[in-house]
Design a protein around this nucleic acid. Structure first.
Lengths: 139, 139
DNA sequence: TTGCGTGCAAAGGTTTTGCATGGCA
DNA sequence: TGCCATGCAAAACCTTTGCACGCAA
């Protein structure tokens, strides 16, 4: 059961900010900077605490940062309430995370289970690569 | 082009240790402890530097640690010289990483490319879940 | 009024870097 | 002999925690 929470300035600002930034993953520090740019100064610990809370509620998802060794990035989940059912595709260039809403998920999970005895946890699995947009501008 | 390197005691010990520990991923600190247990005291910075070097040469692979927020684990690559061609399955319980040597890799990559415009970088993609062994003892 | 939320600062853990010394080729 | 490698310690980084005060309900 979710712990109750107050509607505070920091919480509202964070939610509003995440909503406008779409599902583009950002680090805690980037989020804090973004909030500050919008006139909302929020302590770093508050950012982490709010993100952890939202994460627990399923409103935000936490991914490994694209660049290794650099902690985590957070993305607003929005309408995606079934992340445990599909795979995730993260672009190593732009950082965007796409949710693979496709029957292929089922095929893959079934294949791995039947042929390899491996139970995939889709919600936590992220495939890395280049998204369509970044492929086009591939330098 | 690879930078040349000397054959030093620390380097030999690390390689020997990794060879015996198979492909089971370990953290830098675990590796250091393991070396110490074998009578080889190696400075922590040396461990990191050697791992980074081996990683660059493709002899060692670096994965996110199973538990989030806890850095990385390293695994000996050994005979797997084609990690860029297959997916990786990491067990969230025991930490083992398996290389998916199966035609399914091709299917998946092709599907994602054709249907979703996403170019998967298999070598860096890791699917999380439960391996066969851990599924059996699922508590 | 109650107790959660917040900010600051300090703590924690892991990885990286600077520097002088030591060792391989 | 020339460089690379190593160790120690300090620095850097990101994240978490402790504590006292503030604010929502």
């Amino acid at each position: 059961m979710q712990k109750k929470h107050y509607q505070t300035a920091a919480r509202s600002a964070l939610l509003a900010y995440l909503a406008t930034s779409g599902e583009h993953p950002q680090s805690a520090e980037e989020i804090r900077t973004g909030l500050a740019a919008g006139g909302h100064t929020v302590g770093q610990s508050t950012v982490y605490r709010l993100l952890a809370d939202l994460c627990a509620r399923g409103a935000v998802k936490k991914y490994h940062a694209g660049k290794e060794g650099e902690g985590f990035v957070y993305a607003f989940v929005g309408a995606h309430q079934h992340c445990e059912r599909h795979l995730h595709l993260q672009c190593v260039r732009c950082g965007a995370v796409r949710h693979l809403e496709c029957d292929y998920n089922t095929h893959l999970s079934e294949h791995l289970r039947a042929e390899h005895g491996f139970l995939v946890d889709c919600g936590r699995s992220v495939l890395l690569g280049l998204c369509a947009s970044c492929t086009e501008v591939k330098a």
